[in-house]
């Protein structure tokens, strides 16, 4: 057995250099060369300032913003330094309680909305950082956001549609709305409306 010790030691060293140093360095170099924006976190800029990542959701609870998926990260929701899920089992009373609380908050935000709430809007995401909601979940919130911003439902719907992504190649994944880019666009819209008014 000892006969194999020396080659084994050297093999650990060379394999470490090959797969642990050379390989990640090569991938980093090539990725930063060809896809600098994507490989650096798909950061969104507004002028000089970084305002978020188009792939990482942010918490919203104001009437004038679309709300994203509930987040179970700790200590604060949408904590992108420590991703995490609720891991609540299907029969856990805590799940029923959490969902009921979210339903109540949504109904309070818009008592006139009589449509059933889409399930994804009251169930927490896997990562706690999900940037998307379903088109139905955006549609459900549209009247509230329009009212809070003094816009017509039609205007808000147009923006929602602009920030809706379909299935890749028409097949893969699920249609979805990016809540962060949509809310950023809503803020810009307000700004535009005001500057036009002035």
């Amino acid at each position: 057995m000892l006969k194999e010790l020396k080659p084994a030691l050297w093999m650990v060293v060379w394999m470490t250099l090959l797969t642990g140093v050379f390989y990640p360095a090569l991938v980093t170099g090539l990725a930063q060369l060809f896809f600098p924006h994507e490989a650096s976190g798909s950061l969104l800029r507004s002028g000089e300032q970084i305002v978020g990542s188009s792939l990482i959701g942010q918490p919203f609870s104001d009437q004038q913003y679309f709300w994203g998926r509930p987040s179970a990260t700790t200590p604060m929701p949408y904590n992108a330094a420590s991703s995490g899920a609720s891991n609540l089992g299907p029969l856990n009373p805590a799940l029923a309680e959490a969902v009921q609380t979210r339903i109540a908050a949504l109904k309070e935000s818009d008592p006139s909305q009589m449509q059933p709430i889409p399930v994804d809007l009251v169930t927490s995401s896997a990562s706690g950082l999900d940037p998307h909601i379903s088109p139905d979940a955006a549609l459900w919130q549209t009247p509230r956001v329009a009212r809070a911003r003094n816009l017509s439902v039609q205007e808000v719907l147009q923006l929602v549609q602009k920030h809706t992504e379909g299935r890749t190649f028409g097949i893969l994944g699920e249609p979805r709305v990016n809540v962060l880019t949509l809310n950023l666009a809503m803020d810009r819209q307000i700004f535009k409306a005001h500057s036009n008014g002035d």
Partner: peptide
């Protein structure tokens, strides 16, 4: 609880607890 759980082209439906929208 009266939620919309049917799958369609506008919503995944089903058991979405612990799942990602995309």
């Amino acid at each position: 609880l009266g939620l919309a759980t049917q799958a369609s082209d506008q919503s995944p439906g089903g058991n979405m607890e612990g799942k990602e929208s995309r």
